[in-house]
Simulated scan of single mutants.
Amino acid sequence: MSKYQSPKVNVNMGPMKAVLIAILLLIIIGVVASASVKIVDAGHRGVLLHWNAVDLTKPPLEEGIHFVIPFQDEVINIEVRTLKYASEARSASRDLQTVETTVTVNYHPDKEQVHNLYKNLGLDYENRVIQPAIEETVKQVTANYNAEELITKRPLVKQDIEFSIRERLNQFNVVTEVISITDFEFSALFASAIESKVEAEQNALRAENDLKRIEVEARQAEANAIGLANANIAEARGEAEAIAIINKALAENPNYLDWLKTQAWDGKLPLVVGEGGTPFIQIPVKP
């Protein structure tokens, strides 16, 4: 080697390779650990999948952290809290009146059957079963009533709709909590006719109540008149009996008149004197 030739430098690559391998191992461990740990959120249940197939042998996973086989298992979160769905259904009543019914359903998936729900319907079960169940039920129930009965028998209509919706959704592992019929809407012409009919019925009821009041007052007036007449008759009869008694006493005993005079005299000399010096007195009668 010439004295002017540059010497070769040997670089030891061992430590650098070790660092790279360590970093790679940490990355692999992190990925594996991440794939092994699954979290089920609060208010949810977890559906365990093995190679994308629902595992029906185990119950749904509870809230919290769960360890699964990495890259093989997956967990699908399904909310089991109270959910709300509102639907406006157009239908026809028995008398062929168009009715728009607004139904609100509070529901939640069956917590113990979410894996079956996911297997059969997936996550879009609301549009697949809840909406059709509400619309079909409303059409069937409203067809059993005429438009007026939908208003006057609202609790019975609500009961029929609620029972039918519950029965349908239970088949799909969906639990209904509260079902509300928030509104019945009819055509403007029919609504006006209903309002006029209700007003006429109220006026008829008011007139009937007035007639009953007048009849009661007439009977009261009649009873008062009969009572007053009976009182007058009794008073006249009493006066007639008193006069008859006095006449009989005078006929049987002429001195009875003198006795009455002495009973009525107050001991004072009279201002008016009758014939024979006898004070003139009045025979007391019943006032």
Rank of each mutant, 00 (worst) to 15 (best):
L61D: 09
E201I: 01
E177K: 15
P279D: 01
V138F: 03
K286T: 06
P109T: 08
I29F: 12
T137Q: 10
L25M: 13
T262C: 01
E136V: 03
T262P: 00
K17T: 08
Y118D: 02
A225S: 12
A204C: 06
T142D: 02
E63G: 06
V174Q: 10
P15D: 07
L250G: 08
Q220S: 07
L48P: 02
I161G: 05
K212M: 04
S91R: 04
L228Y: 13
I27N: 07
I179F: 07
A42K: 15
V273K: 14
M13G: 07
L25R: 11
V198L: 11
Q202R: 15
A188Y: 07
F163D: 05
A218E: 10
T278K: 15
G30N: 14
G267I: 01
Q171K: 15
N247I: 07
E167K: 15
R166A: 00
L211D: 10
S2W: 03
I161H: 08
A204T: 13
L20K: 12
Q72A: 00
K38N: 14
A191V: 03
A147M: 02
P59S: 07
K153W: 00
K119Y: 10
Q171N: 09
H50E: 06
Q97S: 02
E126N: 14
I214R: 14
Y125R: 13
T142H: 05
T152F: 02
I29A: 15
E252M: 08
N203V: 09
L20I: 12
E100Y: 05
V54R: 15
N209D: 10
P270F: 01
T101D: 00
P155F: 00
R154A: 09
I39T: 13
L24N: 12
D210M: 11
V129D: 07
I21M: 14
N247G: 06
S34W: 03
E162H: 05
I243S: 13
S36I: 00
N209W: 09
E100M: 02
I181C: 04
A33Q: 08
